[in-house]
Each structure stands twice: as structure tokens, then as C-alpha cells.
Design a protein around this nucleic acid. Sequence first.
DNA 1: AGGATTGTGTAACGTGCGTTACGTAAATCT
DNA 2: AGATTTACGTAACGCACGTTACACAATCCT
Lengths: 201, 201
Amino acid sequence: MSATQISATEEPTCQRPTRGRPRAFDACAGRQLAARRFARDGFEGVCVADLCAEMGINPPSFYAAFGSKEALFRDVLAEYVAMTSKAYAEAIEGANTPRDLRHRVLRTAVGLFTRDGGVGCMVLANLMQKGGGDPMVAYLQSILDALNDAMLTRLQALGLPLPEAEALVRTVAVAMLGLSAAARSGMDRAALDQVVDDLVP
Amino acid sequence: MSATQISATEEPTCQRPTRGRPRAFDACAGRQLAARRFARDGFEGVCVADLCAEMGINPPSFYAAFGSKEALFRDVLAEYVAMTSKAYAEAIEGANTPRDLRHRVLRTAVGLFTRDGGVGCMVLANLMQKGGGDPMVAYLQSILDALNDAMLTRLQALGLPLPEAEALVRTVAVAMLGLSAAARSGMDRAALDQVVDDLVP
DNA sequence: AGGATTGTGTAACGTGCGTTACGTAAATCT
DNA sequence: AGATTTACGTAACGCACGTTACACAATCCT
């Protein structure tokens, strides 16, 4: 909900105004670079100076292009959520039994977590590293809640009673936390897939 | 290895010199408080000023008593590792089948993670939040490696071939990462125990 | 060409953090 | 009592970080 949060500076497509001096760097590539770093190191683990250095720009160019560190994070997070939630939705809709849902969702998660060099989940990584009082945590948690609700609804539609469905959702959530952390720490896709098979009886 | 790292300022027992002005605060209680915060928020998520405020002291007293933030972290981490590794060793030794080992270790982990208000694992929480280049990560990883080696040895002693044993160790490691993060985010012991039962077929 | 608009580089500001200098207070030892 | 040892409180330092002022450069519109 509250999906009317608009990018602070640019629309999703990287079109630029036709007047004035053109940019000397690729802002879209910069966003991708930032997305990778935010997923790997978390919001607090990334500093603007490093991002600027990796993009080959100076701080004023960064702020002109992205607004602020937090605005950039919100942008790449929104794009990440849009992409991944679609993948999870397909996994959930395609599941025909509770066990199948568990397996499909976890396999999908592994596929997402091992993209881009195996960096884990941007949402989970930031949830795991932030303190409870942070305002951003509420938003990250709401993203997770949406996924859990989707799983719960599907499991009930498949005939699973509520208590068992909730327990299964918790199990999948715990497994995803572990898979994300393991992917970030370097475990490769083959090993993670084997772990999923081992975790889904 | 290299176990001769000695506490920067005090021996494990909280004995104090008999001369000079006595302390106006309980350093042992302060260490416990710090241990809880380091496990919950990670090394970087704790600031010295907050610790001082919670202990009711000023920074110079903190440094006189504990040496530095990092020295205090090493101290409480060493104590935590000594305590938990004993618990894990008992779980591993008491296991009679691979499935039993898996279940015992994960149950032990849940018991440890839900102590002290459900704050997760101090080692895993800090591993998950630190970047790869950090020198402290190597030490934290070596603690994990020791646990994994102990599991691997026991599994082979139980007759499990190496590839399967390694895969099972990876599965347990991933599950522990998830359980620690879930405990930190507020999942209670009953739910976590149920998750463990669900993850151990 | 000349003005308007947008981007860039240098250099700095403010804040929060870990840490410490320094003078003062409270205990023990001779 | 005086000297010595240890701890405390105030205040500050140095550094890294997010962020911005300001002057200059490059492009588009008329």
C-alpha cells in the first residue's frame, strides 16, 4: 500500500532532460551498482564517498542525480521489490501443495539471492542489520509481511488449516533468512539448492 | 588457535585491586549489558555513549574498566563462545544419528538464541552485519568453522560419507543463520522450536 | 552570439562516533 | 598526616560520514 512514493529525482526509465549540460556518467549503471552494494553491505554499510568513487563521480553529482543516500536506497529497493515480488507471486500461484509451495518459494529465493554475484536479499539483509527503532524497518517488515500473507492465503486455499499454515509460513521465513545470509557469505547456488532440498522433506 | 589473547584489563573473575579509589559501578553487570547489546545490535550498532549511559558512567570510566569498545567486544565474545561451544559440543556428542545431530544442534541453538530476551547469536549477528574485508570477520568465521568441523567429525564417526556429511553441515549452518535472525526479530521459543521440528524431517 | 539551464569539481560544514587530557575525589600504605 | 594509587567528571580531539555553497563548464533555445 501507499504505492504513490515517487522517485525523488528521476522516473524509472533513465530519460534525461534535453537541455543543459549532459551527464558525464551513467546514472542507471550507478543505480545498479548501488543496488548491489545495498544488498551486499546493507544501507549503513555503504558510504556515499565509496559509491561516488565506484561511479567515478563527486558528491554533488551524486546528490544531483539521486537526491540523497536514502532516496537512492528507496528507489533501488522499490525496483528490487517490484522484481522479486513478481517472482515470488509466480512461485506461490504455481504451487499445488503446501510442500510444493515451500519448495518453489525457497528455490525462487535461492535463484534471486545468487544473482549478481551472490549477494543475498536486499530486504532481509537490511532487516537483519538495522535496529528495531529505525523507521525504515517498518517498511522493510511490511514487504516481508506481504509475502507471508500471500503464502498464507495460498496455503489456506490449498486446504491447509490456519495454525499449520502459519507454522509453515514461519518455517519458510526462517529458511529464507538463512539462505540470504548464506548466499551473502559466499555459498554458491548449487550448495544452496541442495540445502533447500534438504530443508523440504 | 592463538588462544593466548588475554583480556585487555581484567581477568574473567571480577576481582579488583585493593588499593585506590573503589569503582562506583558494577563492571561485571556492565559487561553483561554490553554482551546483550552486542548480540542484539551487532558491534557497529552499539555506540560507546549509549553503553555508558546505560551503565550510568562516563566515557573515561568505560575505557579505564574495559580498555576499548573492541576489547570489551572481544571479552564478551570470548565468554559467549566458551559458554555456547560447550552447549554445542554436548549436543554433538550426544547425537546418535545424523538426523538426531541435526535436531539436537538446532534445538540447542534455539535455546541459546532465545536466552536473555531472545536476542539471537552474537557470532552470527556480527557475521551477518560486517563486511567481508573486516579483520574481525575472520575470527568470527573461525568460530563457526570450529563448530562445523565438530559436526563434520561426528557425522563421519556416525558413518555418514563425506559429501553427505558436508551437505548436512551446510544445511544446519543455514538453518542456524535463519534461526538467529528470527530470534532477534522477535520470534519466540515455541515458534522457533516448531520451526526446527519442521526443518528436521 | 547571448541567455537560460543543467552538470562538474573543489572545498567545506555539521554531526556523531571512538577516544583521551587533565584536574579532582576517594581509597590504601608507611 | 602525608604519599601513593586508583577512579571520576568535564571537556575536548580526530576522524568519517552525509550533505551542501560556490564558482566554472557544457549544452540547448531564440
